[in-house]
Nucleic acid binder design. Structure first.
Length: 393
DNA sequence: GACGCGTGGTG
DNA sequence: TCACCAAGCGT
């Protein structure tokens, strides 16, 4: 089916007028709305992908301070880029934005293109972000269908499961050519403030009159919710290798994750997933063995490790229960490699460390004073207390 | 088309 | 407590 519009011309004009008024009265003062800078718009849109606006704001400020232009980002190291993104999640966004900045410099004169197709071709920029940047930063009359807009349109048209193609067509016909950026942001703001997933405030909605779901009373059921598969749980033994130099701050051995997949190229304490029926302590021992081999470090005392508090972390599709165990070691010869690194406790914040790993480090820091004492009287002597795999209290 | 990909807020 | 989900993209 094509060409068939559900809304009449008169309704479209009505919706444009009401949304424009709604936006002027309700728009939030977000930092990127104060600028007329396409780079600022692009950065804010990428950061906002699947992320709450309140979470984005401080990251956006720090990012624009450090990388005010595509050229500034293009010149940065990936490690610094990931470190600034730390805690925001979906880290491939940071790596793709980094790559996009480089392509802007090499192929677009260091500027953000206006053509939606050119934007769409950049890494990390899909249909939504291309439409948002083209309309908001450059005034191009194209739609920008995010989760909010999908929900608003599904209700306005009373469709249980509208396809992306249908939504793009309807939104494209609806966009106000007089101010496409304002219109698209108004639709999102409406979804965020009024036409919410649960308990939509239809009595306060500026476009309740033409809303088909409102007329049918089906707004709560539009769009139809999707069922998620239950997330698998994995238990992982973690080896925290601690070096206590006599006159310097404590140091830790970290490992860089693989180039692809979960938390790609982020840093972590070495860990191993528990095999079938394997205890976390045994898995941690395997991680220890690998870390000693890779780094050339040696155990100070080959005794039982001290168990640190467990960290349970929920990822988007996986739950991992980290069971960290602490060993004191002496760093070995020259063996290092780019995937392993000794890092001072105070320098962890400069590294791209995922949130769960930071929690492990925090527990270690809390336990450190005791370790110093034990180090002098022989670290090995019965340092174990509580269950080795006790979860976070 | 379904899945992999983080984290924190919310009812 | 926990399921849901937020200004999605790439494969």
């Amino acid at each position: 089916m094509n060409g068939e519009r559900i809304l009449q011309e008169r309704e479209i004009r009505h919706i444009r007028e009401r949304l424009a008024a709604f936006y002027e009265a309700n728009r939030r003062d977000l930092p990127w709305r104060a600028e007329a800078d396409p780079w600022a718009t692009l950065v804010s849109e990428v950061m906002s992908q699947q992320t709450r606006i309140e979470t984005v704001i401080p990251y956006y400020r720090a990012w624009m301070e450090r990388f005010p232009t595509p050229a500034a980002l293009a010149a940065a190291s990936e490690e610094e880029v990931l470190a600034l993104w730390k805690g925001l999640g979906y880290y491939s966004r940071a790596r793709r934005l980094h790559q996009t900045a480089r392509e802007l410099v090499t192929h677009h004169g260091g500027r953000v293109p206006r053509d939606p197709e050119a934007l769409r071709a950049l890494p990390g920029i899909g249909a939504y972000t291309a439409g948002a940047v083209a309309s908001i930063a450059h005034g191009v009359p194209v739609p920008a269908v995010d989760g909010n807009v999908r929900r608003v349109l599904a209700r306005l048209l009373d469709l249980p499961a509208p396809s992306p193609a249908l939504l793009a067509r309807e939104a494209g016909a609806l966009v106000d050519p007089a101010d496409p950026g304002r219109f698209n942001q108004a639709l999102m703001e409406l979804g965020s403030l009024v036409c919410t997933p649960r308990s939509p405030a239809c009595t306060r909605c500026p476009i309740a009159a033409p809303c088909r779901a409102r007329a049918e009373g089906t707004q709560e059921a539009r769009p139809r919710p999707i069922r998620r598969a239950p997330v698998p749980v994995r238990e992982e033994g973690v080896a925290v290798l601690l070096h206590l130099p006599p006159d310097d701050p404590p140091r830790l051995l970290l490992r860089r994750r693989p180039d692809e997949g979960l938390l790609a190229r982020m840093w972590e304490f070495p860990g191993e997933p528990c095999g079938e029926g394997e205890s976390p302590a045994a898995a941690a021992h395997r991680a220890l063995a690998g870390a000693l081999r890779a780094s050339g470090a040696t155990l100070i005392e080959p005794a039982s490790p001290r168990a640190l508090p467990g960290v349970d972390h929920l990822f988007s599709h996986l739950r991992i229960e980290y069971r960290p165990h602490l060993w004191q070691v002496e760093p070995g010869g020259e063996r290092a490699g780019s995937r392993w690194r000794w890092v001072g406790l105070e320098a962890l914040e400069l590294l791209p460390l995922p949130v769960a790993q930071q929690r492990i480090a925090n527990h270690l820091e809390a336990a450190l004073p005791e370790c110093n004492l034990e180090a002098q009287s022989g670290f090995s002597s019965g340092a174990r207390r509580g269950s080795p795999s006790a979860p976070d209290p």
